[in-house]
């Protein structure tokens, strides 16, 4: 578990929002939508590992043995 993931998400978010603005100004609304979607998917892939880590560690720590 690394604190860098928070910075990574923030960087991806800022880049995506800048790209979004540029593309909207250039009149490419559909491309802007696609970049937003791509950014969300990338960040989701980062976070989903963390969530599964959380659930596994809670399961082992609080002894959820089904």
């Amino acid at each position: 578990m690394d604190v860098n993931i928070i910075f990574k998400i923030a960087i991806v978010g800022i880049l995506i929002s800048i790209l979004n603005q540029v593309l909207i100004r250039a009149g490419r609304e559909e491309m802007a939508m696609m970049t937003t979607l791509a950014g969300i998917v990338i960040v989701l892939l980062m976070v989903i590992d963390l969530i599964s880590d959380l659930l596994n560690s809670v399961r082992s720590m609080f002894r959820f043995y089904y």
Binding site: M1, V3, I5, I6, I9, A10, V12, G13, I14, I16, S17, N20, Q21, T36, G39, I40, V43, L44, M46, V47, L50, I51, D53, L54
Partner: peptide, 16 residues
């Protein structure tokens, strides 16, 4: 700019 990405940051911070 992007409220949907702000949620991811709060999730990551909470998990950390």
């Amino acid at each position: 700019q992007k409220p949907e990405l702000a949620i991811y940051i709060s999730i990551a911070a909470g998990l950390f």
